[in-house]
């Protein structure tokens, strides 16, 4: 396949000697002022007390963390919340060797992992530290490393990272979503998933 030839454009005589503009820069700056939703406010307040909230599905009791106010399977609001422990395991993870914008504080390589809290039915993304990257594995037990009490704010950033708890690891077959599916009679378990 050969490429079609380019169309030749003949410029008017009066602009033929003008230096062509190669590019222009148009900086765009827009400011958005977000106000947290009611479910986010509850969750952020809990973080200030070193607590982690989950949203409970009114359909089958499945626990979502962080609570976004909705069970996405059924499109229904989750109004009830539940306190979750700050311990769990790694469902899966990535060792990243690239800097990310806005997080110049991170030492490379760093580990981002899907953290499955004990009692939660979905995972969420968190950083893992306090362990050599080569030792991180699926099923590894972790606990939250909180900021010092005098630095706590109403923010998810109170959890600096997740560090190994020293407990025995879960086998691969029980870690992350597989664990959910394996639990007999798991809430809302879908044999087709």
């Amino acid at each position: 396949m050969s490429e079609p030839s380019q169309v030749e454009i003949e410029l008017p005589a009066e602009i033929r000697d003008v230096e062509p503009v190669q590019s222009i820069r148009t900086p765009i700056r827009m400011t958005y002022d977000y106000i947290p939703s009611s479910s986010a406010i509850a969750s952020l307040n809990a973080y200030a007390e070193k607590r982690i909230l989950g949203g409970v599905s009114p359909i089958d009791g499945a626990v979502f963390v962080p609570p976004r106010g909705v069970d996405p399977r059924h499109g229904v609001a989750t109004t009830e919340t539940v306190d979750l422990p700050d311990t769990g395991h790694i469902g899966s993870f990535c060792v990243t060797r690239l800097p990310i914008p806005g997080r110049e504080d991170l030492e490379i390589p760093y580990v981002s992992a899907w953290i499955f809290l004990d009692g939660a039915d979905v995972g969420f993304l968190g950083l893992v530290s306090g362990v050599d990257t080569s030792e991180v594995h699926i099923g590894m037990r972790v606990k939250a490393l909180w900021k010092p009490d005098d630095e706590l704010g109403r923010t998810a950033e109170n959890i600096v990272s997740w560090i190994p708890s020293g407990e025995p690891s879960l086998p691969f077959e029980e870690a992350g979503v597989r664990g959910y599916r394996k639990r007999s009679g798991a809430k809302g378990s879908d044999p087709l998933a």
Partner: peptide
């Protein structure tokens, strides 16, 4: 808003 940036 209201989330931690570890977007890689």
């Amino acid at each position: 808003p209201f989330s931690v940036s570890i977007n890689a």
